[in-house]
Design a protein around this nucleic acid. Sequence first.
DNA 1: TACCTTGTCGACTGATTTAGTCAACATTAG
DNA 2: CTAATGTTGACTAAATCAGTCGACAAGGTA
Lengths: 159, 159
Amino acid sequence: MKFSKKSEYGLRALIELTKHYGHPITRQQIADRQHVPIVFLEQILLSLKHAGLLGSTRGVQGGYALIKPPAKVTLGQVIRILDGPLAPIACVSKTAYQKCLDCPYTKKAYCPLQDVMGGVRNAIADILDNYSLEDFISGVRRSRRSPVRRVTASRYVEN
Amino acid sequence: MKFSKKSEYGLRALIELTKHYGHPITRQQIADRQHVPIVFLEQILLSLKHAGLLGSTRGVQGGYALIKPPAKVTLGQVIRILDGPLAPIACVSKTAYQKCLDCPYTKKAYCPLQDVMGGVRNAIADILDNYSLEDFISGVRRSRRSPVRRVTASRYVEN
DNA sequence: TACCTTGTCGACTGATTTAGTCAACATTAG
DNA sequence: CTAATGTTGACTAAATCAGTCGACAAGGTA
């Protein structure tokens, strides 16, 4: 039940990129400031670029830059890009749902596992999808900002 | 960010074991009813036994049995036994804490990542540590039973 | 006793994921 | 041109996951 280094490094990189929102910074700078292995970092930045979060410019004054407003990017989005769905088991994922074939509880029956894991998924998503990069770097405490979206049993949103 | 099959199968097995709380049932029965590969299941049952949750008796009428009261065993405990700490990154785990050496934020500075991941950890633990096997099999909906333990930034309980 | 059923233990394996590395190439500024 | 930077794809070493195998131990029954 861990996030990968990829997510961790990716989020760290985004701390730097958000701080410099507007102008590009180089891999090198990101790697130095956040202590991330530079060549691995590259992969990560590329993934984020392909996902449309970052832009890059080549050449001497080049580098990577965040192209979406920091308030519009949530940690949930980033983690899904780098680590896949948030759901702890596949049968409670909205974006990557797959029926557990080996599950003894068919669609008719109530599955205890699915119920509790759905709750976990929602709890995680509730935090991560309501936490933007802006909040992230400004050190907003996670003490539930904004109208708390109360999650009910039937509301699986994304992933 | 997934739980392993080990946890999933382990929890499924515990559904059966809790239903039969009092008398032993065999691996075979568990495997059949919950569709778990029997030889893999064995490993799992052994782990749970070593952790003190299960007892076993050999011989003809033997099998495994839950030896702790279902109300006293939480899903959090089970998952920690089978999957390790719940914390999404090591530096926010209470039971398996380790300082992230490569983290640019020394103990003095506030670490954004640590803050948000701590929140995620607490949200997960909040559900899983308040959900017993008894709740699990009786189909209690996760709609927050019991006085909600409000988690504050400084309260990392276990892992 | 012999035998059957069931649990115990440790070693082993194949597939996948994680965390990287390397080399060759493309683009842009000066 | 050339130096700095990004782009791409192939590659790898190590760990973890999911599962298997074989030999053995112990209790129940005939």
